[in-house]
Every structure is written in C-alpha cells, then in structure tokens.
C-alpha cells in the first residue's frame, strides 16, 4: 500500500489535470465538455499553492537550523550566516510590525493617516530597506557583469575553430546591431544581419529546441502518469 497509494494518487492527479487542459476555456464550466474536470483542477491547483507556501516555511526553518548549527560550532563563514539570520528576522519583524500598524492602528495610526516606525506611509520602513539597501546591492552585483564580459571578450573570445569564429562574429554583429549608431557605422548591414540572425537562425534553432524539450517533457510526464517512472518515490 505504501507504493500503490502514491502511484494511484499520481495517476489520478495527472489524468485530472490533463483532462482539464483539454476542456480549458474562459467560459462557464457547466457548458463545457468535461467541465467537471475544471473544478477538480482548480482544487488541485489550490492545494499546490498551499504546498508552495508551506515549502517557504520549511525552507526557512531548514536554513535557520543549518545556520544556527554552523554559528554555534564556529564553522566556515559563520559570521555571514549570522548576518543572514539578523537580516532575515529583522526584515520579517519590520514587515509584520508595519502590517500590524496598518491594520490595527499601531503607533497611533488611523485609517486616514498611517504613521510608521519610519514616519508617514504604510510601508515606509520596508521600502526604505528595500530601495536603499537591497536594490543597490543587487544592481551592483549585476553591473559587475559588464567588467567581466569585457575582460572575457579580450582573453577568451578567440577564433580557434569554425564554430568559435561563427560565435564571435555573431556576437559582434548582435552588439553592433543592438545599439544606436552601430547600424550607421556599418552602412546598415549590422541591423539587417541582426534581424536575419535573430529571426531565421536563432528563431529556427529556438523552435527546434523548444519542440524537442517539450516532447521530452511529454514523454516523462506520460511515464510518471502511467506509473513507469517512479524515481519520485525514491525507487
């Protein structure tokens, strides 16, 4: 029963969602063929959303458990883990406090005037941390890419073979075609080469990859629904 019940549930859920897909429409479910499957699908999707939300709690609990273990044993990078926990619970605390003040009049707030721990505005403190700390940090990390790509262009982008020559030519053409002035600099050729490369070469390649991957997903899905693939049961 430990094996059969999960397989049976998987088969039923898989079939239910597949049938709902073919009865999907924006209309009234009662007017549709297999309309009842829409109700089953809705219920299953609602459960899935609950599982996702619970997974957040599980993930955070696990992260806290592992981090506390590392901090208490002064393991590798323990100060970073301590900072991570302080930030995690600090931001959570700010969020909960601001939601509380917004709904229940904390800090003397009224319906018309929300007074937060960081002044006027229902999410003033959360926004301050988000826009003054989180946004610049993430933007900085991403901006560093420009420097590493420039360095890689000089050190690693070599015409060693036909494939690498094609790759670096395509890269140069795309870079020129994408920016104002690049087209004029090449007498209109960069723009045309960009359109041709993206629409035909890239478009055809993308379609082939997507169709191939989708067929693979379909085959795997079918194996799971039919109970052939049981790796999710740790078999």
């Amino acid at each position: 029963m430990k094996r059969e019940l999960p397989i049976l549930l998987t088969v039923l859920c898989g079939l239910g969602i597949t049938m709902a897909f073919f009865s999907s429409s924006a209309g009234d479910p009662d007017d549709l063929p297999l309309g009842w499957t829409k109700a089953v699908n809705s219920e299953l999707l609602a459960w899935a959303l609950v599982f996702f939300s619970v997974a957040f709690i599980l993930g955070i609990s696990n992260l806290v458990r592992i981090s506390l273990k590392t901090i208490s044993s002064r393991g590798e990078d323990w100060p970073y883990k301590a900072v991570m926990l302080i930030v995690l619970f600090g931001y959570l605390g700010i969020g909960l406090m601001e939601i509380h003040q917004q709904r229940y009049g904390f800090f003397g707030s009224t319906e018309d005037a929300v007074v937060g721990i960081a002044g006027q505005g229902e999410r003033a403190m959360r926004d301050w941390v988000y826009f003054k700390v989180f946004v610049p940090l993430q933007a900085t990390m991403f901006s560093l890419l420009a420097f590493f790509i420039a360095s890689a262009a000089f050190r690693a982008f070599r015409a060693r073979s036909l494939e690498s020559t094609l790759l670096l030519t395509a890269g140069a053409v795309i870079m020129l075609g994408q920016v104002p002035g690049g087209d004029e600099l090449t007498f209109g050729y960069a723009g045309r080469a960009l359109a041709f490369t993206m629409t035909y070469i890239n478009g055809a390649g993308q379609k082939a990859i997507i169709i191939g991957a989708t067929l693979g997903v379909l085959a795997t899905g079918l194996r799971i629904v039919l109970g052939i693939e049981r790796s999710y049961l740790s078999e």
């Binding site: 420039a150 262009a153 000089f154 982008f157 670096l168 890269g171 870079m175 020129l176 690049g182």
Partner: peptide, 8 residues
C-alpha cells in the same frame, strides 16, 4: 559595445 568589439 564598441569597446568590447575592439577588445575582441
């Protein structure tokens, strides 16, 4: 972009 093409 021009600088990167020059580097290549």
């Amino acid at each position: 972009h021009y600088f990167m093409i020059l580097l290549i």
